[in-house]
Simulated scan of single mutants.
Amino acid sequence: MTGPDRRSFLAGGAGLLAVALVRPAEAVERPPREPTEAAIRRFAGDAPIHPGRVALDLPPLVENGNAVPLTVTVESPMSAADHVRRIAVFNDKNPQPNVLTVHLGPRAGRAAISTRIRLADSQTVTAIAEMSDGTYWSATADAIVTLAACVEG
């Protein structure tokens, strides 16, 4: 008896590849999205979050959600006694609510960050700053996205 010929070998390999590539929908379950409020509470704990001292610059109308410019500035002298410890940015509709967290100190000179983020849809973005005295300050901005990013499936 001879071994499998080339044609049988290739057909069997193609069948195995097809089985490996086709997965039922239930096999691709994603964990549930953490609510934005829960992510904010994980950042700030039970401390009250006050509006003010934070400026969030985000375009109100975004043509492409893949690269949205974002600037956060915080009113602070950035001295050893009074400075920004952390700045965090959160969103309402992306797969992950925590967009970024930046750690600063008095030697940063200015409490300002600029970056580009991805937005999955039209939504509210929130920036929260933790000060050296343990207080939290925030600002929000709404963005209308015409071409969404972060689209899965």
Results as ranks from 00 to 15, higher is better:
residue 63 E to T: 12
residue 63 E to A: 14
residue 63 E to Q: 15
residue 64 N to S: 07
residue 66 N to I: 05
residue 66 N to P: 05
residue 67 A to D: 12
residue 68 V to K: 02
residue 68 V to C: 05
residue 68 V to W: 02
residue 69 P to Q: 07
residue 71 T to S: 09
residue 71 T to Q: 10
residue 72 V to Y: 00
residue 74 V to F: 01
residue 74 V to R: 00
residue 74 V to Y: 00
residue 76 S to D: 06
residue 76 S to H: 01
residue 77 P to W: 08
residue 77 P to F: 11
residue 77 P to A: 09
residue 78 M to Q: 15
residue 78 M to H: 04
residue 78 M to Y: 05
residue 78 M to R: 02
residue 79 S to P: 12
residue 83 H to V: 07
residue 83 H to F: 15
residue 83 H to L: 09
residue 83 H to Q: 10
residue 83 H to P: 10
residue 85 R to H: 03
residue 85 R to P: 01
residue 88 A to L: 03
residue 88 A to D: 02
residue 89 V to M: 03
residue 89 V to L: 02
residue 89 V to D: 00
residue 90 F to C: 11
residue 93 K to D: 12
residue 93 K to F: 06
residue 93 K to N: 09
residue 94 N to S: 12
residue 95 P to R: 07
residue 95 P to K: 02
residue 96 Q to H: 05
residue 97 P to S: 06
residue 97 P to L: 08
residue 99 V to F: 01
residue 102 V to I: 15
residue 102 V to E: 13
residue 102 V to Q: 13
residue 104 L to V: 00
residue 105 G to D: 15
residue 105 G to M: 06
residue 107 R to Y: 08
residue 107 R to Q: 04
residue 108 A to P: 13
residue 108 A to Y: 11
residue 108 A to V: 08
residue 110 R to P: 03
residue 114 S to W: 07
residue 114 S to G: 15
residue 114 S to E: 14
residue 116 R to F: 14
residue 116 R to Y: 08
residue 117 I to L: 14
residue 119 L to I: 05
